[in-house]
Amino acid sequence: MKIGRYAKTIVAAVVAGGVALTVAMGDDVLTATEGITVALAVLGALGVYVVPNAKDDGLPR
């Protein structure tokens, strides 16, 4: 497994989870709802890797 291929995805997941965790820990207590929010942020960032890039049809947008 080449880590370089997944580097941007891993960084995006870590940053998304870190930001959500920072906000969730504002009161020094991590509730179940906040934990789910952190998990969904990480999964959302990982989900971006699964969706393929759109093919460029050459038309201006």
Rank of each mutant, 00 (worst) to 15 (best):
M1E: 08
M1I: 05
M1K: 09
M1P: 11
M1W: 09
K2P: 15
K2F: 12
I3S: 03
I3L: 11
I3C: 01
G4T: 01
G4I: 00
G4S: 13
R5I: 12
Y6W: 15
Y6D: 07
A7K: 10
A7G: 03
A7Y: 03
A7S: 10
A7P: 02
K8S: 09
K8A: 10
K8G: 05
K8D: 11
T9A: 02
T9E: 00
I10D: 00
V11R: 01
V11F: 00
A12F: 04
A12I: 00
A12C: 05
A12R: 06
A13C: 02
V14R: 02
V14N: 02
V15G: 02
G17P: 12
G17C: 09
G17F: 08
G18Q: 02
G18C: 03
G18Y: 01
V19D: 01
A20H: 01
A20M: 05
L21M: 12
T22M: 04
T22H: 04
V23K: 13
V23Q: 07
A24S: 07
A24L: 02
A24W: 00
A24P: 01
M25T: 13
M25W: 06
M25R: 10
M25Y: 07
G26A: 10
G26V: 05
D27M: 02
D27E: 03
D27V: 07
D27A: 02
D28N: 11
D28Y: 10
D28V: 11
V29I: 12
L30K: 04
T31K: 05
T31C: 01
T31H: 04
T31I: 03
T31S: 15
A32L: 13
A32M: 10
T33Y: 07
T33M: 11
T33L: 14
E34D: 15
E34M: 07
G35E: 10
G35W: 10
G35A: 10
G35Q: 13
G35H: 08
I36Y: 09
I36E: 13
I36R: 13
I36K: 11
I36N: 09
T37C: 10
T37W: 08
T37E: 08
T37R: 11
V38S: 03
V38D: 01
V38L: 01
V38M: 04
A39C: 07
A39M: 14
A39G: 07
A39L: 15
L40F: 14
L40P: 05
L40A: 15
L40T: 15
A41P: 04
A41C: 06
A41K: 03
V42G: 07
L43H: 08
L43V: 15
G44T: 11
G44Y: 07
G44D: 05
A45D: 08
A45M: 09
L46S: 04
V48K: 02
Y49M: 15
Y49S: 14
Y49H: 14
V50W: 08
V50G: 02
V50D: 06
V50Y: 09
V50Q: 05
V51I: 15
V51N: 07
V51T: 12
P52F: 05
P52E: 09
P52Q: 07
N53Y: 09
A54D: 13
A54L: 15
A54E: 13
A54R: 14
A54K: 15
K55A: 15
D56F: 11
D56V: 14
D57N: 14
D57H: 13
D57A: 12
D57S: 12
G58V: 11
L59T: 12
L59D: 12
P60Q: 11
R61A: 15
